[in-house]
Amino acid sequence: MRAVWAFARMTVRSLLRRRTVWGILIVVLLGLIAIGHVPSFNVQTEGRFVLEFGLFGLEIGALLMALGLAVNLYPRDRESGTILPLVAVPISRGQYLMGRFLGSALVQIVALLVGCVGLMVILILNDLSIPSTLLPGTLLLLVEGLFLLAVVFFFSFWTSPPLNVPLTLALFVLAQMSVREFVGLFPQAPSLMRLLRLLLPHMDVFHVKDPIAHGESVPLLYFLLACLYGLAYTSFMLSVALAVFRERDL
């Protein structure tokens, strides 16, 4: 584990030098500021509007951050040859993957927390109350972000970055769909589509922006189960990614 942490720290440092990461963070923060300044239809719905769009902004931020952090990490390592002295001697392929993932995850978590704090500041500046479910809601977005990061890593081991982006986006969109919407994509084979939907992750479980915006309570058990589901799926994606990576020639 010591090797993984050492490599994760190295990853954090090199990621923080990338303009893409800072660019995405700035865009998300600017988006949140813009949401705070858009006039709502009436005073009653203003808080709901800011919360709903703010959380949506954070979710899109998590997706963009996952892509910005990880889409080029392995391909760049491979192309430049920086992976050779690492994987040849001090660390195994599993440690490489975990170090890169943990490093990216740390940056992703910090970026999302900054976004969440930004949203809170905007709520305060607009004289709106901060709902108690905002932090657990952000936690679910963090888990979703980790899952997306694992997806990007998985695709990066067997596709190029230009293919990785649309594949991740496609998965992101498909994984939000309900069974009915998914079957509607290809109604000629409903059983097959139901099976496929069962295999695809259910990312809709991470979205609690509606109840949060409407001031409804979300049971703690739901948060816990959704987190567990997300982390289990993330572990699964990383395991598959490692299985693919182990077979790759470097």
């Binding site: 190295m10 440092r13 040859g81």
Partner: peptide
């Protein structure tokens, strides 16, 4: 191992690299 065209993450110094590699090797 000394690779043919060694490439390393350029934001580090040799001392930092040795420290990190030392940790990675335990």
């Amino acid at each position: 191992f000394v690779p043919e065209n060694p490439t390393y993450e350029s934001c580090f110094t040799p001392l930092e690299f040795l420290r990190t590699f030392s940790e990675m090797r335990g």
